[in-house]
Write a protein that binds this DNA or RNA. Structure first.
Lengths: 138, 138
DNA sequence: CTATTACTTGGAGCGCACTCCAGGTCAATA
DNA sequence: TATTGACCTGGAGTGCGCTCCAAGTAATAG
């Protein structure tokens, strides 16, 4: 009924992609990157996947949302069954990076706010204080 | 004395790059992108630049630090001598983007904090709650 | 049986912001 | 004068995370 879904022998790559909510090409890409395993090809027919891959892809996607790069996620997956301390260390490194990016963006925001504010009030005809500020040193 | 610095006729591209604090190739790249002008080549010799270009490159760099893309900076430069309202609108759009990125990162940070915290306390032997969490749906 | 859809492999392309390279020309210094 | 270092053009390469393409094979619906 459910078209080409999983049966006793697992599902095909298209179904995996649909279930994980990613593009089929992305699944292949992750295989090439070594993030997920490629099942061996049966003598005749299509490769069959089980639901572990779907979970693994979702793992990757969730970790990406936390700002990890695919390289870092690969690292994470490698020590995934290993010691908790190692994993936590990677996560803490990531937390520090995120914190730093937030601080940088906050500084950006303050500068933009100040510029926009000045732009709104000091209305020189012809020259924009925002552009002026960016044009000067400092 | 100062080696190859500016004289009456302006400076060469290498000096421009050094003064602006960027790679020489970056100067050329900005020329290709149309962000800065390329002076015409004299019949014999090297192109000569004046300090306006240095200022302009610094403008680009500062705007980049505020999170503008080169495309947006090009836009900004085009309306640079134009109406303040237009410029302000671009800046406000940027501010909104920055705000959104901060919110996303803050959410990331919260999640990481929670995971790290659980990782630190619930010490299951063998299985890391951080990895476990990433592996589950939700 | 046929038409349509899905999978397979390998490689190329994209967008961003550079960065590097090759093979020349030019200028300044010893 | 000879050598060194800086400049010239234009095209290719980089890293990230995909995304697309082509040409072929396999499975399924009607």
């Amino acid at each position: 009924m459910t078209s080409r879904a999983e049966n006793s022998a697992g599902m095909t790559i298209g179904t995996v992609a649909r279930r994980a909510g990613v593009n089929l090409q992305t699944v292949r890409y992750y295989q090439r990157r070594g993030l997920i395993e490629q099942p061996s090809k049966p003598p005749s027919g299509y490769r069959r996947y089980n639901s572990d891959v779907v979970e693994r892809i979702r793992f990757v996607k969730r970790a990406q949302e936390l700002g990890f790069s695919l390289a870092e996620i690969g690292e994470l997956l490698e020590l995934g069954d290993g010691r908790c301390d190692d994993v936590r260390q990677v996560a803490e490194g990531q937390r520090a990076l995120v914190a730093r990016r937030i601080a940088d963006l906050a500084a950006m925001q303050d500068t933009l706010d100040a510029l926009i504010e000045r732009c709104r009030h000091e209305r020189h005809p012809g020259h924009c204080p925002l552009i002026e500020s960016l044009s000067r040193n400092g």
